[in-house]
């Protein structure tokens, strides 16, 4: 998992360096580039906050199946981000999705989302665990299902900031700050709205500066 996160950040950094700017992707990428960029961003930004969950799934599996269970979790988790990526492809066909101002609006949406009561419920679902079958195809199914159970609430809460990052061409500052925000939330004992709102507002301000 750490290798996947490192590779994803490496991909982003390499493209950013080659482009000689703080963003790794061209303003009008092809559909393939868009989808790869989206998935790499999901791995780089979202998986660090799921390290504890992956460790938990591995610890609840037989030693011989731990890596497989961890991979299953990531497949289930990232499947939701892949599905979201397909929607992003459609959204990116709209001219407004290439304007930085849209990213600012998305940050504002993220700030509003953080204070809704629904947000607290999604936060709790992000920590939900299910019993894992220890062997056979059902073990793989359960690991995927556990990842999936964490994936959809994550997409539901983080999509505005992730889409904002995409609109800024995967701006590295946006991505780093978004990763920190997602990790901070994953470590919260209970949902603390103020840092999430403040983070979204600061990111919105950064998009204005771009």
């Amino acid at each position: 998992m750490i290798a996947a996160i490192t590779a994803a950040w490496g991909y982003m950094l390499a493209h950013a360096v080659s482009a000689r700017r703080f963003a790794c992707c061209p303003a009008y990428p092809t559909a393939g580039e868009e989808l790869i960029g989206w998935l790499a961003m999901a791995v780089a930004m979202m998986l660090p906050s799921k390290l504890a969950a992956v460790r938990d799934v591995a610890a609840r599996s037989y030693r011989a199946r731990r890596v497989r269970a961890a991979c299953g979790y990531m497949v289930g988790y990232l499947a939701w981000w892949l599905a979201a990526g397909v929607i992003v492809l459609a959204v990116r066909s709209l001219p407004a999705s290439h304007e930085i101002r849209t990213a600012t609006w998305l940050c504002a949406i993220a700030a509003v989302l953080a204070i809704l009561p629904l947000r607290a419920r999604l936060f709790r679902l992000c920590h939900r665990t299910i019993a894992l079958c220890p062997v056979g195809w059902r073990a793989d199914r359960d690991a995927i299902r556990q990842g999936s159970l964490h994936g959809w609430p994550c997409v539901a809460t983080c999509w505005p900031l992730m889409l904002a990052c995409t609109i800024t061409g995967h701006n590295l500052v946006m991505m780093a700050a978004g990763t920190a925000l997602a990790y901070l939330e994953s470590q919260m004992f209970r949902l603390e709205r103020r840092p999430l709102v403040a983070g979204a507002i600061l990111l919105g301000a950064w998009t204005l500066a771009l």
């Binding site: 610890a59 599996s61 037989y62 079958c133 220890p134």
Partner: peptide, 11 residues
């Protein structure tokens, strides 16, 4: 750390 050494396959 503890290792899983046995478990039921169904609820």
């Amino acid at each position: 750390a503890a290792d899983l050494v046995g478990a039921t396959t169904t609820a």
